[in-house]
Amino acid sequence: MQTGPGDTEIISRVLKGDQAMYAELVKRYQNFVFTITLRYTPAREDAEEIAQDVFVKAYRSLADFRGDSKFSTWLYTIVTTTCITFLRKKRIPVHSLDNERVFEVADNQNSAFRANQVEQKSKAQAIQEAMRLLSVDDARIITLFYQAEQSLEEIGRILGIDPNTAKVKLHRARQRLKEKMEKHFAEVVEELRD
């Protein structure tokens, strides 16, 4: 639950020169931003570097935030563009759903998982690990919807797609997550059914 001054109030104070207030915004959104960046790159150091870059960029362009959307939606748009730029620079392959290689990569990861599969995995751990098996596209849309609490319209705005396309993508992502759960964390899925 958000306490203290609202985002708009903090932003107007920062714009008036109270730079220290920006720390409030950073603290409020750092976990959200960091979680999204981790969906793009598994390396925590890289994810943290991107997240820092996002907040610096957001600070520099704060005057451009018009308030016609939530601050979080505006911020996550910067996250998306910064992550894509970072991955291009680092030449880390982003597995598109259209790319068949994504399934090969996932299968390789799956076999590693199978070897280490712990029988009594908690539900939370299981779903976190199943999320890591998903493609960037799938993990990102699930994170935006459930963890960053963005509506389909807002997700559409962040990703530059139609809300209906976002709806379809979310549905497919959940379906694939469920498949991963059934394949690798069968016991947890059984528990759910009981």
Partner: peptide, 10 residues
Amino acid sequence: MLSHLELDEP
């Protein structure tokens, strides 16, 4: 389960 996914911390 998805609604209770934990956020990562930097």
